[in-house]
Simulated assay, not measured.
Amino acid sequence: MATKILLTIDHTDDTSWKKALPIALEQAKFYGAELHTVEVIPEIIQLPNLPANYGAGAKEFVRKAVQAILDQGNASDVPVHIKEGSVYREILKLAHKDGFDMIVIASAKGDFPNYEIGPNLARVVRNAHCTVMVIRD
Rank of each mutant, 00 (worst) to 15 (best):
W17P: 04
L35P: 02
T131R: 15
L47Y: 11
P22Y: 12
A24D: 04
W17Q: 04
E43T: 08
E116P: 08
A75C: 08
E34W: 06
F61M: 13
F61W: 04
A75H: 09
E84G: 02
S86C: 02
K19V: 04
L70N: 01
L50I: 11
V87Q: 08
K109H: 10
I44D: 11
N127H: 15
R126C: 02
S76I: 09
V62P: 03
L92D: 06
I45S: 11
P79M: 03
F100H: 15
I44Q: 13
H81F: 06
D111R: 08
V132L: 04
K109V: 00
L94N: 13
R136T: 05
K19G: 12
E60Q: 13
Q27A: 14
A52V: 13
A68H: 12
A28K: 05
G55Y: 11
S107Q: 08
E43W: 03
M102T: 03
A58V: 15
A75K: 10
P22F: 10
N74S: 15
I41P: 00
M133V: 08
K59H: 09
C130H: 10
E26M: 05
N114L: 07
G99D: 12
E116K: 02
L50R: 13
V78I: 08
A28G: 01
K93Y: 07
V66G: 03
P48E: 10
P22A: 11
I45C: 08
E43V: 07
A68S: 15
G85D: 05
F61I: 11
N127I: 13
L50T: 14
S107H: 01
G55E: 13
L21A: 15
N74V: 06
A33M: 10
Y115D: 06
G118K: 06
Y88W: 11
W17S: 03
I69F: 13
L47K: 08
N53S: 12
E34N: 07
A52F: 10
K93C: 00
E39P: 00
N120Y: 00
E90L: 05
A108P: 00
K64G: 14
V38T: 14
L50D: 00
R136A: 03
G32W: 12
G57T: 01
L121I: 04
P42C: 00
V132W: 06
I117W: 07
H96N: 12
E26D: 09
F61N: 13
Y88R: 02
A108G: 11
I41G: 11
L50N: 08
D101K: 10
A68N: 15
P48H: 04
Y88P: 02
H96E: 14
E116V: 01
P119W: 03
E84K: 03
R123V: 01
H36V: 12
N74H: 15
G118Y: 05
G110E: 06
D71G: 05
K18P: 06
K93M: 04
N74C: 09
N127A: 15
L92S: 03
V125W: 05
V78F: 09
